[in-house]
């Protein structure tokens, strides 16, 4: 059981690292926010599932799922607000150069 939890947590950490690499590698605000959305869509989910398995069946699992649903409701709002501000400030999305 503990093994399974560790697998989930490590998988979650992998996606968090990929998101961090993405934030460094990608060229502008728009593409970087895509990378950040990886953290909540898979990274946090896998981490929380891992913790839930580690905890076993208890009230804490329910709390973890409450955290998860809040994350899923709020993260799109934050990302959307950031990007809307970028659009309204007149930022142009990065485009690859024509070959």
């Amino acid at each position: 059981m503990e093994m399974l939890a560790v697998i989930f947590i490590v998988a979650g950490l992998f996606f968090l690292i990929v998101a961090a690499i993405g934030v460094i590698r990608l060229p502008d605000v728009f593409t970087r926010s895509h990378a950040v959305s990886l953290t909540d869509s898979l990274g946090a989910v896998l981490l929380l599932i891992g913790i839930a398995i580690y905890e076993g069946l208890s009230l804490n699992v329910l709390k973890l799922f409450a955290v998860l649903s809040l994350l899923y409701l709020q993260n799109p709002v934050i990302t959307h607000a950031t990007l809307r501000a970028a659009v309204r400030a007149g930022l142009k999305p990065w485009k690859e150069k024509a070959p």
């Binding site: 799109p76 990302t79 959307h80 990007l83």
Partner: peptide, 14 residues
Amino acid sequence: GNSITLTPGTITAE
């Protein structure tokens, strides 16, 4: 809009 933003790779900007 929420579903689009939740899916990595697409974000609703406005």
